[in-house]
Amino acid sequence: MAFDSFSAFLTMGGHGPYVWSSYGAFFVLMAALMIWSLRRRRAMLEACRRNFMRQGKESGRAERPAATFTRVEVSQD
């Protein structure tokens, strides 16, 4: 250890505010950048999944009207 005590470590020989504010900014911004990047990727994956799901449903719905139409015809009989 280069310091005698924990409080000496925090004081940084009188330069504490300078050292800790630059390290603080570094950790906050780096963490924010990493979390933001991860969230963007997750959102993009989610958007792709929803797109494919909707496509799947739409193709399913396209078949159904034809089916109901035939059923209606049968009931009128």
């Binding site: 280069a2 940084m12 050292v19 390290y23």
Partner: peptide, 21 residues
Amino acid sequence: GLAFAPKDYLQGDSYRIIFIH
């Protein structure tokens, strides 16, 4: 760099910003 490296003869502990700068 923050806790174990020796301090600088001239700048003291403020030089520890170098480890991220």
